[in-house]
Design a protein around this nucleic acid. Sequence first.
DNA 1: CTGTTAGCGCATTCAG
DNA 2: CTGAATGCGCTAACAG
Lengths: 353, 353
Amino acid sequence: MTIKEIAQLAGVSSAAVSRYLNGGYVSGEKKDKIRKVIEETGYQPSAQARILRTKRACLVGVVVPKINSESISRITAGIESVLSTRGYQMLLASTDNDPAKELTYLKLFESYPVDGIILIGTVITPKHREFLKSARVPVVVVGQHTRYANCIYHDDYGAGKAMGRLAAQEAAGRGKVAYIGVTREDRAVGVSREDGFRAGLEAAGAGLEEAYFRRARFTMDSGYEAAMDLLEKKGDIGVLSCATDTIAAGAIEALLACRQKEVPRSAAESGARMGYILDRSGIRVTGFGDNQLLKAVTEGIPTVHFGYKTSGIRGAELLLDVIERGGQVPVEIKLGFRLVSSREDKNNIDFTK
Amino acid sequence: MTIKEIAQLAGVSSAAVSRYLNGGYVSGEKKDKIRKVIEETGYQPSAQARILRTKRACLVGVVVPKINSESISRITAGIESVLSTRGYQMLLASTDNDPAKELTYLKLFESYPVDGIILIGTVITPKHREFLKSARVPVVVVGQHTRYANCIYHDDYGAGKAMGRLAAQEAAGRGKVAYIGVTREDRAVGVSREDGFRAGLEAAGAGLEEAYFRRARFTMDSGYEAAMDLLEKKGDIGVLSCATDTIAAGAIEALLACRQKEVPRSAAESGARMGYILDRSGIRVTGFGDNQLLKAVTEGIPTVHFGYKTSGIRGAELLLDVIERGGQVPVEIKLGFRLVSSREDKNNIDFTK
DNA sequence: CTGTTAGCGCATTCAG
DNA sequence: CTGAATGCGCTAACAG
């Protein structure tokens, strides 16, 4: 079904139909005719042809590293909230943490095209920079700092430092501090957060020994493996800090598995369970990200709350400013954090922000 | 940058550039020139213009109810795996459980256009049916049964029945069975799963009293509220079954909150925690969906594993068959389930399937 | 208010 | 092998 056919069936010109569709001048009589034909045929105008003409899709593409993540869904929720009130729609592309796929999808969005792109950043390679410099649609990066695009990021260093202090404090008289980080290619999580953590430890008079350090991928399974390895080799860990709550969940799983091995009978039979604190070993796990599911089913581990929803909101606002008002001044926004050391009263704070 | 400008810069016709881009006949000499110009300018052909001509985007759109969900990410992982090996890309649209938005995004994909659409279904309204009947791109529905499109769904009734039996069994001598379901507008989760559960209870000689039944939305918070309400009003609950693991997580949170209220001192100080089994009340929580994070940080609640990744794979295969081979025969696929009554050995089974 | 016309950027005839 | 010409479906002038 094309606009031409509709025009023929209604006995008008295609321009009249176009105007009808877009709120231009059409006489009441023709309006009726056109409406009728459209209803009968179920005609849907081709968006792509319109975009080809108008250069405006009212659409933004969001590239995310993975789908199943509370932090990312908070960011996209923030994005979506401002987009929808401003008449835009949002399309997502998930890269499964593959930087190559990231480029592919960025280019797809660019040429599809969308009016703008939001990249929830992980690793910024030279090719990424290349793209950011020459993209023909505006791009905003969320979650990483970059000079090559407008960006919104979080104070990972500060958060790491705060957590480092806390870890040192908790470890005192209990054991050593261990840390499970991620690839340093991720500047925010792998570098800033980790360096901040080390600085925090040192500020508290402690430190992170190399043998108590591992790197994991951004998955629970990977966290499980890293924690297992740590627990097998080191018997004096007092605090096991993880770069994300997801990794921390894997670490908790590892602790539970160890504990089960040690006291298989009594524990299993009584059904007693310890959450993140193991009665025997007394190891404390910490994370980053303030995962709500984790908090709900355990007592809540010490973690850091980032304003993910806020960063999504700001990111979308920034993007729309560039799209609609051609904002030229480069912008970098750094958002703060909040250390969450235990479960708090649900009613006081909106954790989804 | 358009193909025309590239042609001018290279001193050839736009047709030559087009052929160069698509592997047609171009002499070696011109090839070099064109390549050079394209490299210099960073030219990216406009996908939309090509699609307008060729009617093929090598793209499929997936409409999902929410982003942050293990089940959904497993489905999309399955879809992506077959799509990428067949040279397609995947775009996602999240509707935040809003059926109206679902329609909007279905239409967006239809007119954008993509070559095909996969709808991860929740509620199928008359308007959905309307769309499925008249969509001009093939649509596959995953997770719900419908006569109006090819579909892949799970044996929710069977799973519910199996869980009903288990719940009755666990409740024996412990208390009554309570159930937190979801809207019956969701035929799979709200009707089949629930009806199956009731049937399972009855088959085991038990039943579900109305006062022990609540409906929640598909969120943890909603599960928390429903569970709280149940726990406040009914003191003799032995098993609290929930329609999804997410709701179950909220229920666990509620149990923990109640417990904390009852024994604030001792529990908090000792740091003792119970996972899904409360030492005092002995209430057992069950779910559906086999959420891995939940399983990792608790002992694992009784739940049902559905082949979500498989349904994604089958769904994508089905869709590509229709797209590429114009498969005309309507297909309905029902996939089985596996009752998971406790944490199993990680190494034996691939839970991501 | 209305219809005619001319592209948007590209791929595909069809003559050369 | 190559370039000129045509049209995908639509909107934005423009002249009626």
